[in-house]
């Protein structure tokens, strides 16, 4: 099977979130970056498992500047065969989706994997957009994926439950927790990754239709009101009369 995994770069989960340029831009100074956990832990690993079981190849693609190559190399170290970087700032979901679709169009992938969302802009938009641009079915939040010939049997999270679905390849799927178990790259993988092909391609031009123009931080919480653990009637009263939530 020919598999493509889309990976993005996100701030590390404990990173301090701050903005610059009059709160118009994310302040990346001092921020450590990681591969988006959903892409790394679930999408990439499930793709590798399928390749190991059924043969084929796993390509990873990232839309981003040269600095993203550390993350791309990590994906290669975990086991992907080759990588493609589209050399552009990922301004918006549609922009990224266009770049991925443009590359994937000529390549006839059986499955395009992504994470269910990125932990920075939390959009869940790139997957459905890539699918639409390629004219392919899309399944979101997959927690299980097995192939029977060219038919995929998929379990996916839906609001308050799960769905069992069937779809014929080619298709696009987004990965949620449960789809696979995180893999830590070993020394051999890291050494081999240095020699694996990483192609850099120019972006296709397009207009952004939706742009983030201003950021704000949530208001600071006031001090916590401590309640006597013996007096839960008081907590209930406050929740009713003061917070008005029950």
């Amino acid at each position: 099977m020919k598999l493509l995994v889309c990976v993005s770069k996100t701030p590390e989960t404990t990173a301090k979130i701050a903005f610059t340029n009059n709160n118009a831009e994310f302040d990346s100074s001092g921020v450590q970056y990681i591969m988006n956990p959903y892409d790394e832990w679930y999408a990439l690993v499930r793709a590798l498992e399928l390749k190991e079981a059924l043969g084929g190849s796993v390509t990873i693609i990232n839309v981003g500047p040269a600095a993203n190559e550390t993350i791309i190399r990590k994906g290669l170290a975990i086991g992907a065969d080759e990588a493609v970087r589209i050399d552009a700032e990922p301004h918006s979901a549609l922009y990224v989706a266009q770049q991925i679709a443009e590359y994937a169009k000529g390549e006839q992938f059986d499955i395009v994997f992504l994470g269910k969302e990125s932990i920075d802009y939390n959009g869940s938009e790139v997957g459905p957009m890539v699918a639409e641009l390629l004219g392919l079915p899309f399944i979101s939040h997959a927690t299980k994926l097995e192939m029977e010939g060219d038919i995929a049997l998929i379990e996916a999270d839906i609001d308050g439950g799960d769905a069992q679905l069937e779809v014929k390849a080619p298709f696009v799927v987004s990965a949620a927790k449960g789809l696979a178990e995180q893999r830590i790259p070993n020394m051999r993988g890291i050494m081999m990754a240095k020699r694996k092909p990483l192609a850099v391609k120019p972006p296709v031009a397009m207009e952004d239709l939706s742009v983030a123009v201003h950021f704000t931080l949530p208001p600071e919480k006031g001090d916590v009101k401590l309640i006597d653990p013996e007096n839960m009637e008081e907590l209930v009263r406050l929740l009713h009369e003061e917070a008005k939530v029950i």
């Binding site: 979901a93 938009e125 957009m129 952004d208 939706s210």
Partner: peptide, 23 residues
């Protein structure tokens, strides 16, 4: 921004040549 919305809104944005914001 439900399971259905998350997998459909982006597709509609592409079809309609629309800018989109999710969530």
């Amino acid at each position: 921004h439900s399971a259905l919305g998350k997998s459909t809104a982006g597709r509609v944005a592409v079809r309609m040549n629309a800018g989109s914001v999710s969530g």
